[in-house]
Design a protein around this nucleic acid. Structure first.
Length: 844
DNA sequence: CGCCCGCATGGCT
DNA sequence: GAGCCATGCGGGC
């Protein structure tokens, strides 16, 4: 494996810049607003550098960034720092242990280190890349399974990881290495990868990364770093759109980014899914029997690792190892059951675990957060021309961790060791019973109480409910509910939180003045609120310094964009809602409405979320304002303008917000009615029968239905199969106590505005839950419309605050004109989020 | 009879 | 409509 010596480390730019700095370690300052992250540099930051432990990226000036990209940053700035070691092969000095150069070397089995270039030369023999599961092993043909297994085991286990990235090396070679070296690599690939290399490369090219990679690779001086980063992150990091104007820079930076996906933040997923993973996955998959090339670039959000700093710390312990969150999964009942099989998300399994072509799979050594090692059998079952990956033998581990359904297991990798680490996150720190209580009581618009009651097993309760709401409310951890097939009706309630930045700072989604969806987040340090893109996922801790979206306000010293008044409007909206819901004072209600001017829907949504039960803690409201307010969400809640900023909505308003509300309402009614009708036809419930007898000969259109709302009594019974039923109104307005009482639904009258009509249909037809929800929605709608009336007519209508509070409001109060105005738009009635709408245009 | 393994099923995305 | 995945279930031990 002799190969040309690695290209001499050059530090052109950096070297130059270097002269202006001393060799002290890079700054730890992350707060300087516009200054280069390098404390020794006084330039203005303009580019991103390495990934920080926090998951963010060091923002550097051009010079420093260039130095970093060229792999000479340490040489430039850390020259006098300790920790320099020499490559065992070429003697190149590497600043080991430095976060900046952490990707530039690999540990050797025999001790010592090797720069990436040298490691590349010998990786075939010694490779045990941290990412082996992704690249290296993934590339092994089945015939080399044993080898693969061995390597993987070693990797997954506690063995030292001599060296980390085969794949990237391959890429590097392919693109930029000398022909000789390249030839070797190719030989290797032929030998071990069985021709996958080309495919992988092609895949990369297809992913649009090749260009960048190629260019970067061609930059000999930076090859090391690039390789390192590439290895680490699968080379491609579309994470930042390569198409960005500064693609070159970004691409370069990204490629160098130690970890595009900051483990702790949403960035994390960004990188994980868009960058590393995608490429990694792509590498792995291409050329493999597996046909799952499609969509491999993205793992479902629910599998995105959302480690908290604490979790990461727990995993890494006191070591200097870098934790690379891979994915996580909420345990299902089956997973946590005694069967001992943990179903692995296919994409995750294929992306992060060694490739297996035989159902028997291979043993996988996993270390838990306490350092204890477990060996699971990683295998798969053929399933519908696909595979279902499972980890067998997890029961002991799960029991050891005292996990149960609803809890989350996390998989990460310790680097550079390459150990596969399995962590966990309890659904709640509370006891199962407490959890249930919390869930059912806090409800956040959702109650799992029903199930809890039905199922004496805390376990089952958790399982069925999917998770505990408590943490969500407390904003402590991420709880992404995985639907429970057992209780479909309940499922979505939790599911709504799947992509919410549950670990993140509470944010408030809104629409700015120009109609752009944004979210407001409060700085941990200065408590100032900063505006970020709506599609931004935030870590649990967020500070101004992390505000890469708005460099102008990336420092706590910068004034807040929101005025106190605006803030007051924005933040307390939830409180106001809560208050308004409970208040008996009509006048106050009006005031609230005025305060919420332009936010009627906000109130509506919140009302619905709050349901008839307990109000949300205001603190969590901001975050869970809309359970499904995932970034980019265009739902009614998210698209509405910030408090005080939105225009008033007249009854005849046909803005997106209003239309969405109307449409949503209408769809909800229709769908529910349809479902219920069908059920009713079957069950012959007396109540339904009565309704049936009242049904009209001709089904009114949705519009008609709405028009008829004023006459709840006229609502027709369910006409089985007929989507257009007037019954919806009656149903929505049906506040018949009997129904409420007879309800067996876990919702218990609580409502989730985020319900999807189709899902709502899943509600037990015989229960009132549906009716309750509809009613609640109607109430909320009414409230909204009422507010609009107030706003548009100076409260000429009966301002009775009771309407806001009323749980039995009927649709008849809804303005016909208003409702009619919605009839022409049905496009999104199936959009998942409540009141969601595809149109992202700001309301008016 | 109970457990385990593997596949099938069906809800859901 | 395809694929994913939680769970069911039958057969073997």
């Amino acid at each position: 494996m002799s190969s040309p010596p690695p290209p001499p480390p050059t530090s052109t730019t950096a070297t130059t810049a270097n002269n202006n700095y001393n060799a002290s370690c890079s700054s730890s300052s992350t707060v300087l607003s516009r200054k280069c992250f390098n404390s020794d540099c006084t330039d203005v930051k303009s580019r991103k550098g390495w990934r920080l432990r926090s998951g963010d990226f060091a923002e550097l000036c051009d010079r420093c960034a260039s130095a970093y990209e060229e792999g000479s940053f340490c040489e430039a700035f850390h020259l006098r720092a300790s920790g320099w070691r020499c490559c065992e092969s070429c003697g190149k000095r590497v600043h080991c242990g430095c976060i900046v150069s952490i990707q530039a070397f690999t540990l050797l089995d025999a001790g010592g280190i090797a720069c990436l270039a040298c490691a590349r030369k010998s990786f075939v023999l010694t490779s045990n890349p941290a990412w082996s599961p992704l690249f290296y092993h993934a590339s092994f043909p089945e015939r080399l399974k044993d080898l693969s297994v061995k390597s993987w085991s070693q990797l997954a286990g506690s063995g030292p990881v001599p060296w980390r990235q085969a794949p990237s090396l391959i890429l590097g070679e392919t693109f930029s290495a000398p022909s000789l070296e390249k030839r070797k690599v190719e030989d290797f690939s032929e030998k071990f990868i069985n021709g996958n290399l080309r495919i992988r490369l092609r895949d990369i090219v297809e992913n649009g990364n090749a260009g960048i990679i190629g260019e970067e690779q061609s930059q000999t001086p930076s090859s090391l770093m690039e390789d390192a980063s590439a290895q680490q992150f699968g080379i491609s990091t579309p994470y930042k759109s390569l198409s960005e104007s500064n693609s070159q820079i970004e691409g370069s930076v990204n490629a160098l980014q130690p970890a595009p996906p900051p483990p702790f933040t949403k960035h994390f997923h960004g990188s994980l899914h868009n960058g590393v993973d995608s490429s990694v996955d792509g590498h792995i998959r291409n050329g493999k029997p597996r046909t799952d090339a499609r969509g491999r670039s993205q793992l479902l959000p629910r599998y995105w690792p959302r480690f908290t700093d604490g979790e990461l710390h727990q995993i890494s312990g006191n070591s200097n190892s870098v934790i690379k969150p891979l994915f996580e999964k909420m345990l299902s009942a089956s997973d946590a059951g005694r069967i001992g099989r943990l179903v692995l998300p296919k994409k995750c399994a294929e992306a992060y675990f060694p490739p297996i072509s035989q159902p028997e799979g291979l043993p996988l050594r996993v270390q838990d957060s306490t350092g204890k090692e477990w060996i699971f059998q990683f295998r798969f079952w053929p399933n519908n021309n696909s595979r279902m990956y499972v980890l067998e033998g997890v029961t002991p581990c799960i029991q050891n961790m005292q996990l149960q359904a609803g809890d989350t297991v996390t998989f990460s990798r310790l680097e550079p060791e390459g150990k596969l680490v399995m962590g966990f996150r309890k659904a709640s720190s509370a006891t199962p019973s407490d959890q249930d209580n919390e869930t059912s009581q806090t409800g956040n618009g959702v109650s799992t109480k029903g199930d809890a009651e039905l199922d004496p097993s805390p376990w089952s309760k958790v399982d069925k409910s999917g998770y505990i709401a408590k943490e969500v409310l407390e904003g402590k951890s991420s709880i992404r509910k995985r639907k429970s097939s057992t209780l479909g009706s309940k499922r979505f309630e939790f599911e709504e939180y799947e992509d919410a930045p549950v670990l993140g700072k509470p944010t408030i989604f809104a629409t700015d003045n120009v109609g752009q969806k944004v979210q407001w987040v409060q700085c941990e340090d200065c408590l100032k609120w900063r505006k970020l893109p709506a599609n931004t996922l935030l870590p649990s801790k967020w500070a101004c310094s992390s505000n890469t979206w708005d460099p102008e306000r990336s420092s706590c010293s910068v004034a807040q964009e929101l005025t106190a008044e605006q803030l007051e409007y924005l933040i307390p909206s939830c409180k106001l809602v809560v208050a308004s819901k409970r208040s008996k004072d009509a006048r106050k209600e009006i005031d609230r409405v005025e305060a919420l001017e332009g936010e009627g829907l906000d109130t509506l949504a919140n009302l619905a979320i709050l349901g008839e039960g307990e109000a949300f803690p205001a603190s969590s409201q901001a975050t869970t304002k809309h359970p499904r307010h995932r970034p980019g969400c265009s739902c009614i809640v998210c698209i509405q303008p910030p408090s005080g900023k939105g225009p008033k909505h007249k009854q005849t308003c046909t803005c997106n917000v209003c239309q969405t509300v109307k449409r949503r309402f209408k769809t909800l009614m229709m769908k529910r009615e349809k479902k219920q009708s069908e059920k009713e036809a079957e069950t012959k419930q007396s109540e339904k029968e009565a309704e049936t007898t009242r049904k009209k000969p001709q089904e009114p259109s949705a519009e008609k239905l709405l028009d008829d709302e004023p006459s709840p009594s006229s609502n027709t019974g369910s006409e089985s199969g007929s989507p257009n039923k007037k019954k919806t109104v009656s149903e929505g307005s049906d506040d018949d106590p009997k129904r409420m009482k007879s309800s067996t639904s876990p919702f218990k009258g609580q409502i989730d505005l985020n319900i999807q009509p189709e899902r709502e249909d899943e509600l037990s037809p015989g229960s009132d839950s549906g009716g309750g929800m509809v009613r609640m929605l109607q109430d909320a709608t009414e409230t909204y419309l009422r507010m609009q009336r107030f706003l548009s007519s100076d409260g000429d209508n009966n301002p009775s605050g009771n309407h806001m509070l009323s749980s039995g409001g009927t649709g008849e109060k809804i303005s016909d004109a208003t409702m009619r105005g919605s009839s022409h738009q049905d496009a999104d009635n199936d959009h998942p989020p409540a009141f969601s709408m595809n149109a992202s245009a700001p309301a008016t």
